[in-house]
Amino acid sequence: MTTTAGAAPALWSRADQQDFRARVRGTLLGGAIGDALGAGIEFQSLDAIRAAHGPQGVDDYVPAYGRRGAVTDDTQMTMFTVDGLIRAHVRRDTGAWHPPTDVHRAHLRWAATQREWGPDERRPDAGWLAREEWLYAQRAPGNACLDGLADDRMGTLEAPKNPESKGCGAVMRSAPFGLLAGWEPELVFQLAAECAVQTHGHVTGYLAAGAFAVVIHGVVRGDGLRASVDRALTLLAGRPGHEETTAAIRQALAAVSAGPPTAERVESLGQGWVAEEALAMGLYCALVAEDMRHGLLLAVNHGGDSDSTGSLCGNILGALHGETALPPAWLAELEGRATLLQLADDFAMELTQGPALHSPSGSSAAWLARYPRV
């Protein structure tokens, strides 16, 4: 399923479409479950987690933000990234094709949810996602994300926003770029990096985002997790300033061979607050996971940015195994499940059947109301 950037594969069989939709659902829902599992213990030390929940740590949702299964800014921003990628494909009918711009506009819509009381029905560009009232909640958004989106100027690789920031805020929202299954891996990497610098301009911040997107891309295309990690390392090697990100990934791979997975081994990779550590921790937990449940609990039971490492691990395992691998009890309580499912299905439909939904000669009015061209 390879093609030029922005184009759909020439032919999607029905089986291909069903498999792709399952992996898109798995990626978004798996990431949200990992996010929600970590939300209630973020900022706590491993000793504190074990003291409160037993030697194994948490084994279920812990209430956060007034409920069980609550998601954070990790999931919010991932959702708006998906919205931006759909908009980019829809707007291509107009002759405009610059996905970083459409993703930036989507992230500005997310930023508006962090400062406004609720949806503004007067905005012609809002679309359906920005009208979801439950998304208008502050869930510990990162300062770099808020600062980078405080004005309309879009950061670029040549003039990035927050050039000293390598927090995990760009990596945590980059799984959707990997869902562009018809793109070449090099283009997926480039797009993720270009969108990362809109808020996180440090070379490690945006290269880690690119590497993570390539890992997702590989597993969605059926290449296997280890092969996808190796491809990410190969693409990193050609990028100036890759050493920090490459070293973190190699440390994760070494940890896989060092012995049975433990919380202490996860912590040996860092705390997850910065991009390369979050990437390494999420990768490690996915690589050693016995199943979705085991991998996600390993990814959140540590003294660090538990929701982000849980989200990254969940993105990977969901992309790898699809939606049916998700633990049903966690899925049932997940905040925003219906919205996530709708968004996942819309993304899958756009990528596999976009020409039937919109074209320069005729389009579905309902689809354009959901994803305006403006």
Rank of each mutant, 00 (worst) to 15 (best):
L351S: 10
S361F: 14
Y65R: 03
V374M: 00
P355W: 04
Q353D: 12
A232D: 03
M349K: 03
T3C: 07
E276T: 01
D152N: 06
G241N: 06
I216A: 04
V300H: 12
R109Q: 15
V62A: 04
L334P: 13
N315V: 00
A144R: 07
W117E: 09
P240H: 03
G6H: 02
L146N: 01
L296Y: 08
D74W: 01
T101E: 12
Q114K: 05
M172I: 06
L187K: 13
D73E: 11
V171Q: 06
W183S: 08
R122C: 02
G169S: 01
A286K: 12
E164K: 15
A299Y: 11
M1N: 08
A150M: 00
G155T: 10
E323V: 11
Q198D: 11
E350K: 11
Q18C: 08
D305V: 07
G362A: 13
S45M: 02
D60Y: 03
F80K: 15
G54L: 09
R50P: 10
R293A: 15
D120S: 01
Q342V: 09
E335W: 11
G66Y: 13
A280V: 00
S306H: 04
D59Y: 07
E132F: 00
R221N: 05
A51L: 14
P99L: 06
L236G: 04
G336K: 13
E323Q: 02
V288E: 02
S13R: 08
G66F: 07
Y284M: 04
V82M: 03
E333A: 12
Y61E: 00
D147S: 05
A348I: 02
A111W: 04
E42G: 05
D346H: 13
R337L: 12
T352C: 09
A15K: 10
R370W: 05
A227I: 00
L149C: 09
W273G: 08
A170K: 01
L368N: 04
H98F: 09
E264G: 11
N301V: 06
L233P: 06
E333N: 02
A348L: 07
L129Q: 09
P163W: 00
A96N: 04
L187R: 07
L225G: 03
S364W: 07
G69S: 14
R109P: 02
Q17R: 15
S257G: 03
A137N: 08
R226E: 15
V214K: 06
T101G: 13
G155E: 01
Q342P: 00
W273A: 11
C313I: 09
R50Q: 15
A348F: 05
A126Y: 06
N315L: 13
P9Q: 05
A51K: 06
A237E: 02
T2R: 12
L179E: 05
A64L: 09
G142E: 13
D223W: 10
W367E: 14
T4E: 12
C145F: 15
E277K: 10
V24P: 04
R67S: 13
